[in-house]
Amino acid sequence: MSEKRDGVVLTAEQKRRQRSRNLAIAWALAALCVLFFVVTIAKLGPGVMNRPL
């Protein structure tokens, strides 16, 4: 089996779009982390870690 499989080769335009989508997802995930942190504090208060195990 010496046949070479190229797979999907993205064009420059497709790579650019992929990069912008990746950045948008990264920003959305970062924003969600901040949101969930702030919501946790708002719901449970600053003493969230201060409880018996």
């Binding site: 999907v8 993205l10 497709q14 779009r17 992929q18 912008s20 989508r21 948008a24």
Partner: peptide
């Protein structure tokens, strides 16, 4: 759009 190749083709603004 790359739809045949299973590659997303949209810009962020399309989503």
């Amino acid at each position: 759009a790359g739809a045949f190749a299973g590659v997303s083709g949209g810009e962020v603004r399309d989503y």
